[in-house]
Design a protein around this nucleic acid. Structure first.
Lengths: 142, 142
DNA sequence: AATGCAAATGAGAACCATTTGCAACTAGCT
DNA sequence: AGCTAGTTGCAAATGGTTCTCATTTGCATT
């Protein structure tokens, strides 16, 4: 609670420094994002943000998300056959496991895989700029 | 040449067995796909297929690609910020390295990464159904 | 507190890759 | 050759996302 409040203030600072105004609508979206434990999409964020500020429009949600993405504050993910989903970029780098039955997203990280990726790119004569690794899974039954 | 011809006949057989009719248009699209060395998108396939059979429409390209995908003959890839690209599913499984400057796609395979992925899923209580691994790279300068 | 102005907003139109409805064909079995 | 369900081309629809534009607003400066 207190943490997320601080986090919000911090995020607002990042925006101001980036020359991005902190409006009522953006504050609402930022708060929702900072408190989100999941990976909501634009319309879910819109739904949640409207509870704080009913005037927030979907256009503004999209525009704000793009602005936040450019500031490096938010990350956009385009998982298979789905609308874009978002998360704050405060956690260290990680990849995603998607439950193909529920759509739930679990974060994970493997330094070994990260390293192997860089090696593969290097072997092929490339520098790795970024990557996308998604595991589409089904919950183990037993 | 001869190989791709055989491959086409083979693919047509798969379709017929799957209860999918091999029409003039589908034969053209199949030929283009079998001969493609790259990862073309729907409109590029359409452009190429029209050279064989001018009547092929873009709708049919899309419909055929969906049918082929369902038969497991074609794979669809949705790389970042781009339209879907396709390839025949005859080669063994591989992942992709995308040159972010040219859009060129290079295939690669890492058994180690494959194995690590399965282990990660298992640790999290999941069975890995499929995955997506894409390396977005820039050609090394020197 | 009032002012000025660039940035931001809401509503809806535009975009664009992909899908779909429909009436006219046709592959492939009999 | 004929039948019939699968296919086709065309045009219209779809749907997530972006853009346009007239209006509002944050905020630096008086």
């Amino acid at each position: 609670m207190r943490q997320s409040k601080n986090r919000i203030v911090e995020l607002e600072g990042i925006l101001r420094e980036g020359g991005v105004r902190v409006t009522r609508q953006r504050a609402a979206i930022l708060k929702i994002l900072a408190e989100a434990e999941d990976h909501p999409d634009a319309s879910e964020l819109h739904r949640r943000a409207k509870e704080i500020d009913a005037t927030v429009s979907l256009s503004t949600v999209y525009r704000t998300l793009s602005a936040l993405e450019q500031q490096g504050v938010v990350q956009r993910h385009a998982f298979e056959n789905a609308t874009a989903r978002f998360e704050t970029a405060d956690a260290p780098h990680h990849d995603h496991l998607i439950d193909i039955e529920t759509g739930a997203v679990i974060e994970f990280r493997s330094d070994k895989i990260e390293q192997l990726q860089a090696e593969i790119a290097a072997e092929l004569g490339y520098d790795l700029v970024r990557h996308r690794l998604e595991l589409y899974c089904r919950k183990r039954k037993e």
